[in-house]
């Protein structure tokens, strides 16, 4: 027993189909783990931020002229 909850194959296959993607069966489990990690990351970045935090600042930073 790995202790990991089983993946919802139907759900992950549905998500893949929605983007026109296909993946070999053996890829599904590790792929679902990656997607779960990114889902959690997306949740984390949605937390409130100061109004002044604009993505444009990122694009300007590396330039000094």
């Amino acid at each position: 027993m790995s202790g990991k909850p089983p993946i919802d194959r139907t759900a992950i296959e549905q998500r893949l189909r929605s983007r026109g993607l296909r993946m070999p069966d053996e890829d599904l489990e590790p792929f679902a783990e990656l997607v779960a990690m990114l889902d959690a990351a997306a949740e984390a970045v949605r937390a409130p931020l100061p109004v002044a935090a604009e993505p444009a600042n990122v694009l300007m930073l590396p330039r000094t002229s």
């Binding site: 893949l16 997306a42 604009e54 990122v58």
Partner: peptide, 18 residues
């Protein structure tokens, strides 16, 4: 392929957090 499900909104929130 794991990037396929990231929304535009999440991407922009990530850039704001960055």
């Amino acid at each position: 392929a794991s990037g396929a499900f990231i929304t535009a909104s999440d991407y922009l929130h990530a850039q704001r957090r960055r």
